[in-house]
């Protein structure tokens, strides 16, 4: 009885320090169009009230700024086309976001790996969330997909969904 209690206690204490993983797969589809530009893509974790719990990635055209701390990269001009991300996170963020901003990606599957030991997931309170992936393409369309999940995960779980045009397969793997 006493032994069982101490095991339970150990388990309880271990709770906050276990390493939970969150891995995302985003497929940028191969589109046969006359004028193709790589899409701008934002990946984030959303709370139930649609506020942003964590920015995971935002891919946009990166160009060197001109002058000292002066001109912003021209690539940021179109960031507001990621409408939902811009409203929820982008417009109040200082760009580039360290560890989140990156260059646009070519067609193919792109893997993103995160764990609760470090930013941006460190300190994410337990609860229900949605993974959100939004893509907007110059002279193309815009699309957003969501995958609900619980954090931290009780056991390993795999989720997937698919965009119609601007996003291919989107996968989410979480494990305690």
């Amino acid at each position: 009885m006493r032994a069982r209690f101490s095991i339970a206690l150990t388990g309880l204490l271990a709770g906050p320090v276990f390493a939970a993983d969150l891995n995302v797969g985003v497929e940028v589809p191969n589109l046969k169009v006359a004028e193709y530009h790589r899409p701008y893509v934002a990946v984030w974790v959303e709370r139930d009230d649609q506020t942003v719990a964590a920015n995971l990635a935002v891919w946009y055209q990166q160009k060197e700024g001109k002058g000292e701390g002066g001109k912003m990269e021209q690539g940021t001009k179109w960031l507001a086309d990621l409408r939902q991300w811009w409203r929820r996170a982008g417009r109040s963020a200082t760009l580039p976001i360290d560890g989140v901003s990156g260059a646009t990606r070519p067609a193919g599957v792109h893997k993103l790996e995160f764990d609760d030991a470090k930013a941006p997931l460190a300190g994410l309170p337990a609860g229900s969330y949605k993974l959100v992936v939004e893509a907007a393409r110059e002279v193309g369309g815009r699309e957003i997909v969501r995958i609900p999940f619980q954090w931290p995960p009780a056991k390993p779980a795999h989720f997937d969904t698919k965009g119609d045009v601007e996003l291919g397969a989107v996968t989410l793997d979480v494990s305690p």
Binding site: K71, M72, A80, W86
Partner: peptide, 9 residues
């Protein structure tokens, strides 16, 4: 022409 954009546009 637009109502929601980024700074310096």
């Amino acid at each position: 022409s637009t109502t929601v954009t980024t700074q310096d546009q």
